[in-house]
Amino acid sequence: MTSVLIIDDHPIVLQGCRRMLEDAGVKTVLEARDATSGYRLYRRHHPDLVIVDLAMQGGGLGGLEVIRRMRSHDPRARILVFSMHSDPIIAARALEAGATGYVLKDSNELMKAFDQVRSGTPYLSNDLAMQVALVRTGVRANPLADLTPRELQTLSLLAEGKPYGRIAEELNVSYKTVVNACSQLKQKLNAKNLPELIRVAVQLVSTEP
């Protein structure tokens, strides 16, 4: 394998991945800090494998959407999600979108996952494999399945009783972004107002697999 594209908005992650890949003999490592520019690089260079985060700052494409586009462009694309999200619903959605593998950032499995995905074999972090297997059979019927990773994060923090300002700080986004996310959540979860959304959030998060 000669080329890998990394799409992640954290410079430290980009540097760490590049170092490990180069040590493993990868000749060309491309980098993008958002999904939109990452997709452009993908179309321009057609790397052998893509490592992508799901929740990145900025507008434009999200992680799941860029996975769908890459998979649509090339059904044989090898895509490894490298994410902090350990929620099995998010992992299941990434796999449904077309990811070949899913590995957690707080694990030591990146290179193991990389080796497996580049050979064309699906990979799931050990801690997630069983949970995802249980979730995928009913993921479409779960109301959380239609939410983006950012919306799931927001919903979880709402369930903890945190106000918009605190949620914005914890997610490192603007207050307006949180307001917009909550507006989308109300529509998707059929909540008429914020108190009802918080009540729904508590119910869903407490029963989440």
Rank of each mutant, 00 (worst) to 15 (best):
I6Y: 01
I6P: 07
I6A: 14
D8F: 03
D8A: 01
I12M: 05
I12V: 15
V13K: 04
V13Y: 00
G16T: 13
C17V: 14
C17W: 00
C17H: 03
R19D: 15
M20C: 06
M20I: 08
M20E: 09
L21C: 00
E22P: 01
A24G: 12
A24E: 11
V26T: 08
V26Y: 04
T28D: 06
V29I: 09
R33L: 09
R33A: 11
D34Q: 00
A35G: 03
A35S: 08
S37G: 05
Y39L: 12
Y39T: 02
R40I: 09
L41S: 04
Y42T: 05
Y42V: 03
R44D: 15
H46W: 01
P47A: 04
I51M: 02
D53M: 05
L54S: 10
A55P: 01
Q57C: 08
G58N: 03
G59H: 00
G60P: 03
L61M: 12
G63E: 06
L64M: 11
E65F: 04
I67S: 11
R68E: 14
I79H: 09
I79S: 02
I79L: 08
S83R: 00
S83E: 05
S86Y: 07
D87H: 07
A92W: 09
A94L: 05
L95I: 15
E96Y: 01
A99W: 00
V103F: 00
V103S: 08
L104Q: 05
L104T: 10
D106E: 15
S107R: 04
N108Y: 01
N108A: 14
E109L: 03
L110V: 11
M111V: 08
Q116D: 01
R118L: 12
S119L: 11
G120Q: 02
G120F: 02
Y123I: 04
Y123D: 07
S125E: 01
N126D: 12
D127W: 01
D127S: 13
D127N: 13
M130Q: 11
Q131K: 11
V132W: 08
A133V: 11
V135A: 08
T137G: 14
G138I: 09
G138Q: 15
G138H: 14
V139M: 12
V139L: 09
L144Y: 06
L144T: 11
A145F: 12
L147T: 15
T148K: 02
T148N: 04
Q153G: 12
S156C: 07
L157H: 11
E160A: 14
G161L: 07
K162H: 04
I167H: 09
V173L: 09
S174Q: 02
K176E: 10
C182N: 12
Q184N: 13
Q184V: 11
L185P: 11
K186N: 12
K186Q: 15
K188R: 14
N190F: 10
A191Q: 10
N193I: 13
N193L: 06
L194W: 07
L194K: 14
E196F: 00
L197T: 14
I198N: 10
I198P: 07
V200F: 03
A201E: 12
A201Y: 03
V202N: 08
V202A: 13
Q203P: 10
L204G: 15
V205S: 13
V205C: 14
S206Q: 12
S206K: 12
